[in-house]
Design a protein around this nucleic acid. Structure first.
Lengths: 192, 192
DNA sequence: CGCGTGATTGAAACCCTTCAAGTTTAGTGG
DNA sequence: CCACTAAACTTGAAGGGTTTCAATCACGCG
């Protein structure tokens, strides 16, 4: 397994073999079939999902039934509705699998124990939190300041593999435009 | 002072009088004149600014010179470019004062000491971080899923006092539209 | 009073959406 | 392997919504 969670923890949170043994029982591995929903709007998000292989998606559905994709989560990403997880509130979002996906499932217990036995993990956890904020902040900046075409170009530059793995309409959804608009933007871009 | 930082800390981070004394030297109070810039793009953001009175603004400026406002920070808010602060990178944003503003200025030292002497502060600090994520996430959801009119209605509902304190063109900037568009949206809304 | 800034309005252009119709693609079962 | 089907993508036309640019109006301040 290329992106196994344990190895990821060792490399990124400086967790030792020793500590891994203590945590082993708290890490649940699951294989999620394509299209399976892991979090429904209205539920409290009780888990972090670390993607070892596959692709998850974090999105909302509005009154008109339109899906709005906030995030794609390929290998090495962690998805969670932090607001719901942390504040114990019903989530307004969904998480599902766009491919058959193997995940490491982590709950509050895991976070608490890992934080307790490893100051490095605590730091790592804060780092991904800060990183998440940076990411969201930049995304907002592009949404209010850039055109759809610029946002698309940024997207394919930043997430090279995702365009090959998800339907184009989902990229449109991520960018905040319709599939038709994205199709036309792509046509324009290819015409030079 | 209605929203003095020390009182805020006592109420929200359960900091005691005792601990306040230890922290006093780390809290710098400043009065920022209107239009003064606290953080320039390209600088590393070294401080948290807690607004005791007045109004700050967090924004970027793009190649065309257009300002894109990510956040308004009235009383009781904390502004900081967390990405720059945490990762020690040059910021891509600006912070300035839209009114004469009194702030408590906090640096890394303050955060470190407060975290060390008070577990409550540590928790508080994580809480505002998580809250920040919730806020950004919801904002993105509205930007990709709602019309300009809906976003405007949400804005005036959520931030009742801000529309009276900032020029309308800045609200337009926050919403990601032009001042002219916002003017027309308001006209439409008033015509019923 | 006059100036400057911000808000409004109009007209044209542009971008994006909507709806409806094709076309292409991928997957399924024979 | 082909034929069929459903889903995804593309395209066109019409219509909104937004922007742009320019002009005008409203207001506060020196």
């Amino acid at each position: 397994m290329r992106y196994e969670f344990k190895r990821y923890l060792q490399e990124n949170a400086e967790i030792t073999e020793e500590q891994l043994k203590q945590l082993e029982g708290e890490i649940q591995k699951r294989v999620i079939e394509e299209n399976k929903i892991l979090l429904h709007s209205g539920e409290v998000c009780e888990h972090f999902y670390y993607v070892e292989e596959g692709l998850l998606r974090f999105y909302s559905i509005d009154e008109k039934g339109k899906e709005n994709i906030l995030e794609f989560a390929p290998e090495k990403w962690i998805v969670v509705d932090r607001a719901s997880f942390y504040f114990n509130e019903p989530s307004e979002f969904y998480i599902d699998a766009l491919e058959e996906t193997t995940v490491a499932v982590l709950d509050k217990e895991f976070i608490d124990i890992a934080s307790e036995i490893s100051p490095q993990f605590r730091k790592y956890n804060e780092r991904i939190l800060q990183n998440h904020i940076r990411h969201l902040q930049n995304r907002i900046n592009r949404l209010i300041g850039k055109s759809a075409e610029e946002r698309y170009l940024h997207f394919i530059e930043r997430y090279q593999d995702i365009p090959n793995r998800v339907p184009q309409r989902m990229i449109a959804s991520y960018l905040g435009i319709t599939p038709e608009s994205l199709s036309r933007i792509r046509r324009e871009l290819s015409h030079n």
